[in-house]
Simulated assay, not measured.
Amino acid sequence: MIRTPLRPLARILEARARGDNPDAIERENLAARHEAMYDRDRGRAESRLFVLGLCFFAAFSTISIRMGVLAGTAPAEPTVSAAGVEIATQRAEILDRQGRILATNLETSALYAQPPMIVDPARAATELARIFPDLNAAALMEDFTGKRKFLWVRKVLSPEQQQAVHDIGEPGLLFGAREMRLYPNGALAAHVLGGASFGREGVSAAEVIGTAGIEKMFDDRLRDPARAAEPLQLSIDLTIQATMEQVLDTGMKLMNAKGAAGVLMDVHTGEVVAIASLPDFDPNERPAPPTKGNPSDSPLFNRAVQGVYELGSTFKIFTVAQAMELGLVNPRA
């Protein structure tokens, strides 16, 4: 960089010849030099501020786009299922021989939490424990203030429970769509149907799988998306089933029996029209399998197919059949 001298000799001589003060020339050149330095430094500062502004703009744009994506989509639990595997939620209905519904599906919601988004963990834990008495407020508080980023709170909600949670107004408590299995007849034909539960789960869907009975035996058929609209029809007659269970219950109470069982079949086709075992259970709230004691004491025990009994008079069938085969008796005589 070439600097202009503050006191150029030629101008000094000219100023002296005119009788002017040579110091004014130095002050003028010094002011010009300072102004040039100021302009140069200002240009550098403006360039740096421009680059810094671009960086801030890019950063805030990225954050805004990310927040928009998160706000517009439901977050998925990272450990629910393998990446890229779609959860099949459809499950065919089960009907009796007359076309009456034995098992169907009901749309409901699940409740999950994202602790980093919870504003008031203490209040959220207290309110949830009030809505769901089986939950522990202290345990929820520990989960909400810990390092977890996702946790299930409730897998199935009633409409009243969902509204109560919604009224808490906590942004970290979120709902996920669910389709649960519903048995509209309660305990009727419970051992036949068995029951179902959730398999692989995500925040927006859950897989319903059979755990016992018809639900488990025909699980692949019921879960087949291609046959989801095609109900599985059984040979069971709901009316006869209800009558049999009522008769067995009356006899069980009359005889003060531990349990009762019955099977009614069509003599011409061999179809099972009714099959019952008491005590029974409600498959909508299927109890947990027993871990100790006699399994036959559990209502899950199906006395009609799992019980072991003496043949008694049923053995007479074989005696008569052998006599007829040997020609010792003639049924037409």
Rank of each mutant, 00 (worst) to 15 (best):
M1Q: 10
R3E: 14
P5N: 13
L6H: 05
P8S: 08
A10G: 07
I12A: 11
R18Q: 11
N21A: 14
A31S: 09
A32W: 08
A32F: 06
R40M: 13
E46F: 14
S47L: 15
G53N: 11
F56S: 10
A58L: 12
T62G: 15
T62P: 00
S64G: 15
I65G: 10
G68S: 07
G68K: 02
G68R: 01
L70R: 13
A76Y: 07
E77N: 15
V80D: 15
S81Y: 15
A83R: 10
V85N: 06
I87Q: 02
A88G: 14
E93L: 08
L95I: 04
I101N: 05
T104V: 08
T104C: 11
E107W: 04
A110F: 01
A110N: 03
A110S: 15
P115L: 11
P121S: 14
A125W: 00
L128G: 01
L128K: 00
A129P: 00
A139F: 08
M141I: 03
D143T: 05
T145F: 05
T145R: 03
R148V: 10
K149R: 14
F150E: 06
V153S: 02
P159T: 04
Q161C: 01
D167Y: 02
E170V: 01
L182R: 08
Y183F: 12
N185Q: 08
G186W: 08
H191Q: 09
L193I: 11
A196F: 07
A196H: 08
S197R: 10
F198C: 05
G199W: 05
G202W: 01
V203W: 03
V203R: 12
G210H: 08
E215Y: 11
F218Y: 15
L222K: 08
R223T: 13
R223P: 03
P225T: 04
A228V: 10
A229D: 09
L232T: 05
A242E: 09
M244W: 03
L248F: 05
A257W: 02
G259M: 01
G259H: 07
A261Y: 06
A261D: 03
G262L: 05
V267Y: 09
V267K: 14
E271C: 09
V272Y: 01
V273P: 02
D280L: 00
D280T: 14
P289Y: 01
G293N: 11
N294R: 12
P295A: 12
P295G: 09
S296N: 07
D297S: 11
L300P: 00
F301W: 13
R303N: 00
R303P: 00
V305D: 01
Q306R: 02
Y309I: 04
L311K: 07
S313L: 09
T319R: 05
V320M: 09
A321S: 15
M324C: 12
E325V: 12
V329M: 12
